[in-house]
Design a protein around this nucleic acid. Sequence first.
DNA 1: AAACGGCTCAACCGCGTTGTA
DNA 2: GTACAACGCGGTTGAGCCGTT
Length: 292
Amino acid sequence: MGRSPCCAEDANVKKGPWTPEEDQKLVDYINTNGHGSWRSLPKQAGLNRCGKSCRLRWTNYLRPDIKRGKFTEEEERLIINLHSVLGNKWSRIATHLPGRTDNEIKNFWNTQIRRKLLNLGIDPHTHKPRTDLDHLLNLSQLLCVAQLGNLMNPLDTAFKLQADAAELAETQLLQNLMKIMNTNQRNPTPQNIPINAGAVPQTSSDYQGVENPLGYVQGGLINYENLDIKNHQILSNSFEQNENQLPGLVSISPEMENMAETAQDSSIYEAWEKLLMEDKADGGSYWKEILE
DNA sequence: AAACGGCTCAACCGCGTTGTA
DNA sequence: GTACAACGCGGTTGAGCCGTT
């Protein structure tokens, strides 16, 4: 079934940034009459805009309960946790952050959180450690530093921190490999399919506990706060606590999950090969020992 | 001071969903 | 059950701001 494009009947409707006068008209009208039908609102409010544009302006900017200013750390944690469960369901995420709009959260995610996670070696889509080659380029740099660090005074904290980061990256890679090995050894049976694969929680009780951001972060998701490489605050204890608890919490369709798994597997093998080559070139036996 | 590039965020676009006749 | 209108959502765009060269 086709649908006519929004405002197609009136090609002369204004687009682009709203003026203060337009804002005032919209606010005055909604305060007096409520928004009612967005389609008919612009005409009644004396605005040369389409209803969609009015709705967006109101919900994302003019609504009185909009919270302005920077996101707090608490909000940031909550967004990450909710995103790990809900994916890009920005409006669903926004319902848990009073005063924040889906658009605002989406922008915040795309411009800041996403980059932060990438820098920490975490895939922002899966919330799992990255295993792509770009990341491995950084990894090999870290490995060099780590090896240097071993030669230096162990009390040299800057080197030690970077060495910790390298070790963390290595362990995460190893963990992924182990996972793949385990998966490949078993025949895929329906019991092996995660119960929640492809399912998006429909009620708040479906992600009970997620709204307790601290509990969730400490319990399952990588505690990226403690991995804040930028601020040199890697806490190896917290990693030890979490290293066996990297849950597949992202809800994607089974087909997508299979695709992602396959793609991830091949890049992990490539990464693995690269690390072995490097290890061999260094005459080391680190990975051999781990495997044994 | 000017040019440039990166970043932010308001706004738009297109599609899926829902409601109604 | 079908057709259509309206709404809502997520992805994308682009103007403007800001820092760097």
